[in-house]
């Protein structure tokens, strides 16, 4: 697969603690969750506002379990891995394309995601058919330029895929526990509502004006 690049205006990713058995239930047998502490794994709730892509502008909401990256050789390995398992976008074309390219599974309906910046906070609100899906927020610390090398895992018809993703842009991260999340009942969020997920993120990432570049998709 050739390199594919998506320019974004805003990207927000909040890390919440979830019970490890719940994370294990989501993951295929060959992946294991990273634990922040004993029996507590990581649910990443991520939203992007893409402005520059080959399917135009659109928004995306994704729930992933954080997994360890494959350690190959020092100097080449990614910083973290993620396994998206609940995802939705505002554009049918975007989910068709990303679904085909990366084998991520998307909700088969358009959603709407808004990013509201007030003071030092970015509030993300997502709806489907006018009904709220999730509200979550992160706050800023100091901004710096960053470049994150990640591995995205996906599964399709018993095939295992791994993509290498580089996210660059202006970036702030901290663990001051100032963010929040409220989930609303919906087909997408139903599996989460029954679980014990912390109502605040332990880590808050916020990107601005950057690019998400998919470098490779390997079957392994």
């Amino acid at each position: 697969m050739s390199v594919v690049s998506y320019g974004f205006r805003t990207g927000v990713s909040a890390f919440f603690e979830m019970a490890t058995p719940d994370a294990e239930a989501v993951l295929p047998a060959y992946l294991q969750p990273i634990e922040v502490r004993h029996q507590r794994s990581v649910l990443a709730v991520t939203a992007f506002l893409f402005e520059d892509s080959d399917v135009g502008a659109y928004t995306e909401l994704m729930f992933s379990v954080i997994v360890p990256p494959q350690v190959a050789k020092w100097g080449e390995h990614a910083k973290a891995g993620f396994y998206p398992y609940l995802a939705a976008t505002s554009s049918a074309e975007a989910r068709r394309q990303r679904g085909e390219r990366f084998h991520f599974q998307y909700l088969d309906e358009d959603i709407d995601v808004r990013f509201v910046e007030t003071g030092d906070r970015c509030q993300v609100k997502a709806w489907a058919r006018g009904e709220p899906l999730v509200d979550f927020s992160v706050t800023q610390r100091t901004w710096e330029d960053t470049s994150h090398l990640l591995q995205g895992y996906s599964n399709c018809e018993n095939h295992r895929y791994r993509s290498t993703v580089q996210i660059s842009g202006r970036y702030t991260v901290h663990e001051n526990e100032q963010g929040s999340m409220t989930l609303y009942p919906h087909e997408l969020t139903a599996p989460l509502l029954a679980q014990e997920i912390t109502p605040y993120p332990f880590r808050e990432h916020w990107f601005k004006n950057g690019r998400e570049v998919f470098h490779s998709l390997e079957q392994f």
Partner: peptide, 24 residues
């Protein structure tokens, strides 16, 4: 489309947590 290879972060951006699970 940029086609430079992915560039891993600098050594100091890694920490012990990155060497907890291996592939081999």
């Amino acid at each position: 489309m940029p086609d430079a290879p992915p560039s891993p972060p600098g050594a100091m951006e890694y920490d012990y947590t990155n060497f907890y699970f291996g592939a081999g």
